[in-house]
Design a protein around this nucleic acid. Sequence first.
DNA 1: CGGGGCGTCGTCCGAAAGTAGGAGTCCGAG
DNA 2: CTCGGACTCCTACTTTCGGACGACGCCCCG
Lengths: 214, 214
Amino acid sequence: MSIRVLVVDDQAMVRAGFRLLLADEPDIEVVAEAGDGLEAVTEAARCDPDVVLMDIRMPELDGLEATRRILAADPESRILILTTFDLDEYVYRALEAGASGFVLKDDPPEQLIAAVRTVAHGDALLSPAVTRRVIKQFTRVHQAPPQAVETLTEREMDVFRLITRGYSNAEIGRALFISDTTVKTHVTRLLQKLDLRDRAQAIVLAHQTGLFET
Amino acid sequence: MSIRVLVVDDQAMVRAGFRLLLADEPDIEVVAEAGDGLEAVTEAARCDPDVVLMDIRMPELDGLEATRRILAADPESRILILTTFDLDEYVYRALEAGASGFVLKDDPPEQLIAAVRTVAHGDALLSPAVTRRVIKQFTRVHQAPPQAVETLTEREMDVFRLITRGYSNAEIGRALFISDTTVKTHVTRLLQKLDLRDRAQAIVLAHQTGLFET
DNA sequence: CGGGGCGTCGTCCGAAAGTAGGAGTCCGAG
DNA sequence: CTCGGACTCCTACTTTCGGACGACGCCCCG
């Protein structure tokens, strides 16, 4: 009763690497390979693997669409997405598509193998590196407004409020009857205090934490 | 260079169980135990463990507060929270308190051991059971867009969504695997379609209309 | 009285953002 | 097959932002 795996990647070298890597594991068996999304769908239908190891970037049909189609044909399929970057926007979309998990290509091999077993067993999984990111996002959303906001002066708050309305520096200047260079001073300082990069992030922060509601 | 672990639980039997469980692992060593939160704090300060395995429900000082204090004394500490229930409240609060991970007491032993290694290595971790819930939270997406937003193409929507997260053009490019000049093209066109001046206004619009909730 | 925080206003500079226009691919509809 | 829409990428340009300075006046507080 070994775990039957389908490896999908457009680079033959990568597929070979995984095949080799998994060959040492007695309870895991690579039963098929596919070089693009379309192949992946047909192969999945043909050999009904326990786990599909799927690259996300592929010709013909990308990993997302392939995931959707495979799951449409067999909702029981377990699909483990592979990617190179962890800030990958495709993470979310892959999970939406119904993928069971997510592993970085440069995670250590043992982690990949453990991941295969985990999803085969029915659990969902994110690679630790991805998890760290998710946790970070997660805790940020659920945190009360950072007390750093309290360190803002009255004037900085004025500017902050107008920033969250989408005003430019010049507009803020006109609204507050000060020069735009002064506005820039305030903006720079509030960004520093809140540890943000630009006004865009400031707006996001304000809305996430419910600042300036109403 | 084994991983030095401090086990914290108010039940001596549980501590003994973990000690036994971890004794078989050559690279893991239980260097101390504590029966409540206060003890945990002093023990952590005394023996400076690599990983603290901490129950969340305890007399004197609960796992959350103990976590905060240990981290206040040494921000480098890795704390792995143990609990019997996968109630979200604990997850949030433990992560807020700065815990590196979260494991259910009835997760299989191998998972616990792997978790210890993972957090010792510096990665964050959620038990698969918890991860599934987190994933669910994160994959909640788009809803009915208000009018003009419908004229946006799929790609423009992708870019729009990342803008509302505070991403720069370069970051969006990396996330979507396209060049930043292409991102700028999409940005310009979506701003035109929505009759907005800059990304800041786009973020405001998105949040005001409840686009891209969560 | 002297600091220190705050608000105001500058300059200089580099990095982003946004605009304009062109151009190539792919794909589906007519 | 042609046409057009979507997507991609480019060059070249202007404007805006943000950072790093410094400066001045104000007012409060030790």
